[in-house]
């Protein structure tokens, strides 16, 4: 029994890390641009395809592929900001509806380009790590390890650089930030690019575990939604707490009850939190 609990705990943490990568990018985009980005999951999908192209078509090493994915995603984000989102900066609802359209374009674009069938991704590592009774497949450990490194890197960028300070200032108050010399014309595209890059890296990291297809974006988008609603839109500490919580709830409910029960429990939780405390567990009161 205690073995099952420990195993669920580890699985929950792995899930939580990945949900966190999705949710931070999502909540960052909302914080900076006030856009609820329904296309966020499609950037996860694009990241996974980038990894597939890099590793199998071009034969690049996994690390180089990940780096390229980040660069490509930031550029893509800047482009999307310019072409799609820029006119809707002050209009939350229109921006959100536009992101629905963007999601359709990206998903069906991938469908035309890559076809509907799931594609296998070569395993990056094989074998398992053993700690006593606990078993962790090395592929999952690798994903977890890189995920944690990316998250720490992002944290440092956000908290200890000039650029990060500018982003945080924008989240707090756009006008005051602009008055103090934060350059909106650079920060908006880069902020969106960074948020999208986190989703793309999550996709590239998950590709070896779950395979790649044009439809893989829906589930992570849903998780990102749940996490940011629980944690509070625009709140990064809230997202961190909620992502871990969600990972653990899912892993424990599906170990001890069933997978579909896990989904229903989390959605009921989301509805309850939205009704009782719409600004989320750690969010600022604004709803």
């Amino acid at each position: 029994m205690s073995f099952l609990i420990a195993q669920s705990l580890i699985n929950g943490v792995i899930l939580g890390t990945l949900y966190l990568m999705m949710a931070i990018g999502f909540t960052l985009v909302f914080g900076i641009m006030r856009i609820v980005n329904f296309a966020h999951g499609e950037f996860y999908m694009i990241g996974a395809f980038m990894a597939l192209i890099g590793v199998t078509w071009l034969g690049l090493p996994y690390a180089a592929t990940l780096a390229l994915t980040v660069v490509f995603a930031v550029l893509l984000g800047a482009l999307v900001e310019r072409v799609v989102f820029r006119p809707f900066r002050s209009d939350e609802l229109s921006g959100m509806i536009a992101s629905l359209g963007l999601a359709m374009i990206l998903q069906n674009g991938a469908l035309i380009f890559f076809g509907p069938d799931p594609q296998a991704f070569p395993a990056m590592v094989s074998g398992v790590l053993r700690f006593g009774d606990l078993i962790i497949p090395k592929s999952r450990a690798l994903t977890l390890g890189i995920g944690v490194v990316v998250l720490i890197g992002f944290y440092v960028l956000l908290m200890h650089t000039r650029f990060g300070r500018g982003l945080r200032a924008l989240v707090q108050d756009q006008q005051v930030a602009a008055l103090y010399g934060v350059r909106l014309e650079i920060m908006y595209p880069l902020g969106l690019g960074l948020g999208i890059a986190l989703a793309a890296v999550a996709g590239a990291l998950m590709a070896p575990l779950f395979g790649v297809s044009p439809f893989i974006g829906a589930a992570p988008l849903l998780k990102a939604f749940i996490v940011v609603i629980l944690g509070g839109l625009g709140s990064i500490p809230g997202a961190a707490l909620a992502a871990l919580l969600l990972g653990l709830i899912e892993s424990f409910t599906s170990s001890f009850v069933s997978a579909s029960a896990a989904d229903i429990v989390t959605f009921a939780l989301v509805v309850a939190v939205l009704l009782i405390r719409p600004s989320g567990i750690l969010g600022r009161g604004e709803a």
Partner: peptide, 27 residues
Amino acid sequence: PLLRLRGVYFVLITFALNELFRLVMLE
């Protein structure tokens, strides 16, 4: 209770409810 929420928050909760409807019906 739902309509106390406005703007994107209302959109988000209705999005969650639509998903909940599908999951519960499948159950």
